[in-house]
Design a protein around this nucleic acid. Structure first.
Lengths: 280, 280
DNA sequence: CATGAAGTGGAATTTTTGTTCTACTTTGCT
DNA sequence: AGCAAAGTAGAACAAAAATTCCACTTCATG
């Protein structure tokens, strides 16, 4: 064993990078060459094989293993994991570090840990939405909804709060809505009043609530345009709807965030209100 | 060979995604399951091994290979390359893209700007909560609620979705709740059943809904412990409640985020459930 | 410049991984 | 209901990978 300090090796890319740059451990020529290569082409380390990387770095395969061990890992694969994690949840890495800092601060406080988890899941969901949302579809959905006389809001269980909020907010904006999911149990009858001049918004995530799907099919059969908000192209809502938007919420401890969906419907509602104002 | 169209398979992630969504090739159940998984956890495909992915997706290793071949690749590795390439050129420019894409590409896109605003407000709210929340108070609140026979949930207007969510989630956790704010108009009578052995959660932000305050005073007068969630020490809810938690939500275009409050109540609910489990 | 320790290259070995094959199950059709 | 076709699970196999090992080279030191 060469430069092994006995200390534990870095668990994340950031500190591994620090270590390599600082040269706290003086590495022999070939190993230093590997370090340089790794900092220069981190993706190569993440995706390559020992053989392929060795070739590109003009080094023997065994050198890569020795390098990994010199830093303190048991083998090359462990080192590679660090490089892969870095690419895994690209946008979470920053937040995770923040979380790590906080965790040490309130290490023994379960409430702090939980809040951190939920907040982190929410932020992750929001970032993924920012990156992946198809804004054309949002605009198309908004036009559909703006043209509707009445907007029927369909959601059950954990998605119900979203439609409850839409019901309130759209009311404030002067848009006529009907909130499905009332405890009165007359939802199906209520939906019989919907016409093709109206529209519906349906929200459902895995595992898709059966009644939501039933209602969507009911109104779709009546020719009512349906905007679905769901979490996968393979959601049963997709084939039943006119138009759909994808939101994937991260979860923590089995509780799925609602933040991204909330942000999406807020966006949608504001655009609907704007179109209404323009076309009046 | 199954659904192989003979056509050449996609060379980049984007078109592969399209293909899977469009269902141009109708896939059998297990292969569809793989497609679903791949779209949900693309990173898993990029870094995992056939065995590890198969396990996570609840599928046999051979299914992954058949899936790849059904799309037109010669084997799994070719498919995996697509997923890896996607991460390769993403990360390098992620920060630039974040800054650049949003401002240049969507410069004229109102939907993107709105979403950006709402997402940003949500993140800001969450961060402020993380920094400022008094975790001791959360623990105290959780103990009060855990000791309650029934938890009454009081909120109106824009806060109602929060209690609607709590009603659902606490139900899942086996905690008995009563959701105030039903359209039936019998809320005040319902609250007459509350006793000091119960508890209430009241949520209200500026401008404080009058009925929420009325209800809080009503139950407080009956000796029911009240946990208030509000946005200022000067909120009228504070003097009327046993215990209060502060959440300040940022807003954008007049729409206040609900993300921080959501994260807070999730935290609270999990702790309540934990205490219940321990003391039973 | 002799000598031991550290470093290195390349082949040998072991482990992991992707792929193929076959018996069995499900599905769709008459 | 019966039968062919399509789909699937799981083990067997082949390929490719990581790791180890050992002979050889370089370097520092007295």
């Amino acid at each position: 064993m060469t430069a092994d300090t006995g200390a534990r090796p870095p668990r994340d890319f950031r500190s591994l990078r620090e270590l390599m740059i600082s040269q706290a451990v003086k590495l022999p020529k070939r190993l230093q060459q590997v370090a340089d290569f790794a900092m220069h082409f981190p993706d190569e380390i993440a995706f390559g094989t020992v053989a392929s990387i060795a070739e590109r770095a003009n080094v023997q395969p065994s050198t890569l293993v020795r390098f990994s061990q010199a830093i303190g890992y048991t083998g090359f694969s462990e080192l590679q994991d660090i490089f892969r994690d870095r690419l895994r949840d690209r946008h979470t890495s920053y937040n995770e570090r923040l979380a790590g800092l906080r965790e040490t601060a309130h290490a023994d406080n379960p409430a702090a840990k939980l809040l951190e988890g939920f907040a982190e899941a929410a932020v992750r969901s929001l970032n993924s939405l920012r990156e992946r949302l198809e804004f054309d579809q949002v605009a198309a959905a908004a036009h559909r909804l703006a043209a509707a006389e009445t907007i029927y809001l369909i959601a059950q269980r954990r998605s119900f709060p979203i439609t409850a909020y839409m019901n309130y907010a759209l009311g404030q904006l002067g848009v006529k809505t009907v909130l499905i999911g009332s405890p009165v149990g007359t939802d199906s009858e209520t939906l019989e009043f919907a016409t093709p001049r109206d529209a519906a918004v349906a929200i459902s995530f895995t595992p898709y609530a059966a009644t939501t799907l039933t209602y969507v099919r009911q109104v779709a059969a009546r020719g009512v345009p349906v905007v679905a908000i769901t979490d996968s192209p393979f959601s049963p809502l997709v084939p039943a709807s006119t138009l759909w938007l994808e939101v994937v919420e991260a979860d923590f401890q089995g509780f799925r965030s609602l933040s991204a969906t909330m942000a999406l419907v807020m966006t949608l509602m504001v655009i609907v209100a704007e179109i209404r104002r323009e076309t009046q």
